[in-house]
Amino acid sequence: MTVVFSKENLKLSKDLQTLTGENVMLCYQCKKCTLGCPSAYAMRMKPHELMRATQFGLAEEIYWSGAIWICLSCETCNTRCPQDINILRVIDGLREMSKESEYYNPYPAIPALHRIFMALVERFGKVYELGLALLINLRMLTPFKDIDMASPMLLKGKLKPLPHFSHGAKELRKVMARIRAMEKDRFA
């Protein structure tokens, strides 16, 4: 594939730098990130390839591969990067920017989980584990997944059937509303 450096191609790395403060151009492809990555085996675009793609501005390829959603956020890559690039922050930046590219995402259930998680937190102030599992299982059309794991946990009282409420939930909702208002038009 031929890639030409142009203003258009440099837009992605510039956008990433404004959003996250990380300069992806520092990457010189030593592959330490990929070698240490526990989920690289499941990625169609490995972490070092992802870094290269951000340098070239290949946004579509990145979102098509779905690699940003396979990342486990374990921070091994950040720790080992000789150029001190915060790779997880770059990936988080790509995740934040991915809203318009949702169509390309081969693993839509993973961002859906994050959305359900935050919606439950906004409602109750705390995570409701059983509700989260049920909702995401419905979303993935596999309602009975992991029932063999959940039933002994329910019997032993390690999963609570009802959600816990936090008295801080009201304040939390106020904070989340303010942030939403502040970030409303950041990718416009």
Partner: peptide, 20 residues
Amino acid sequence: DWVCCGASSAHATSHLLSIA
């Protein structure tokens, strides 16, 4: 009155939220 810290879901949606 503590609330959830946002874990790995908050920083995948908004950096500011994950700090807030």
